[in-house]
């Protein structure tokens, strides 16, 4: 069965709430019924088939073509299946997703994979602020799964993150790992200021030496046995993280943020 494909006819001026088009909500619907659904576009409600041309039938395998940065809430609360975005994705991509897979060929906006629980998200380009974070006022960000960003990520990566992996091949902005409760953020490129700000537990795994706050204490150089196991788990990815030539188990360990619980760690390749 061919993938259910939404091809954007034109780019609306206002932002589009794509949350009604998650795989689990479309299960069992005929293409005509899907076309008749309405999406919130700014203040207006617009029929799906006015905004997209539809083809294919497989509601558990969705492709969004001609996508651009104003298509928000793509694959919100996704429970299973796969969503492929050709182009950019807007804000809240994969918000609260429970399982399944999202692949974006371009960039994604703020709150990518925020409060995600399980599954896999791939961003071929750059991701905005608050990747894997918690929505404002909420206490728990990402709780499981893996986010792979091949480009750069914005500020506040993993804010309030609780569990799971965020893998960034490029750079991460300021406040990476802020208020993190647990989980792993790995950054191959450079990290910005205030790394691990108010971090409680969790691991920031870095290939480049960071600019650390005074509230992170040097615990010395170590060979850590869990790193080969962690890197082995990345080998199935189509990513530089799978390249064993870039793997290591010898690190400088910094503990922090001592202004908070201080059980977090920054591990820097040496």
């Amino acid at each position: 069965m061919s993938a259910l494909t939404f091809t954007l006819r034109h780019r609306p001026e206002q932002r589009v709430d794509m949350s009604p088009l998650s795989c689990h909500l479309l299960q069992g619907l005929e293409p005509s019924e899907i076309g008749a659904l309405t999406l919130q576009v700014g203040k207006a409600k617009v029929r799906v088939d006015d905004l997209f041309t539809l083809s294919g039938f497989d509601t558990q395998n969705i492709i969004i073509k001609n996508s651009f940065a104003k298509l928000d809430y793509i694959a919100k609360d996704l429970e299973a299946g796969s969503v492929r975005v050709e182009g950019d994705a807007g804000a809240y991509l994969g918000l609260g997703m429970k399982n399944g897979e999202i692949r974006v060929s371009g960039n994604s906006g703020i709150f990518t994979a925020a409060e995600m629980k399980k599954g896999f998200v791939l961003i071929e380009g750059n991701a905005g602020d608050f990747v894997g974070g918690a929505l404002p006022g909420n206490k728990m960000g990402m709780k499981g799964g893996t986010v792979l960003i091949k480009g750069n990520a914005g500020e506040r990566v993993g804010d309030h993150m609780r569990r799971g992996n965020i893998l960034i091949e490029g750079n991460a902005g300021d406040y990476c790992g802020s208020r993190m409760t647990a989980g792993t953020i790995a950054v191959m490129g450079h990290t910005g200021k205030f790394l691990g700000y108010a971090m409680r537990r969790g691991t920031l795994l870095l290939w480049q030496a960071p600019q650390l706050m005074a509230t992170f204490n040097d615990c010395g150089a170590h060979t850590l046995a869990f790193l080969p196991i962690l890197f082995n788990s990345f080998k199935k990815l189509d990513s530089r993280f799978a390249d064993s030539g870039l793997h290591f188990n010898r690190v400088q360990r910094f503990a922090g943020d001592m202004s908070d619980m201080g059980r977090g760690e920054v591990l820097v390749k040496i």
Binding site: G144, R163, G164, A182, T184, R201, T203, F226, I229, L230, S233, R263, E265
Partner: peptide
Amino acid sequence: GFQVSKLI
């Protein structure tokens, strides 16, 4: 209390 958990 210094132990660290990792889910891999």
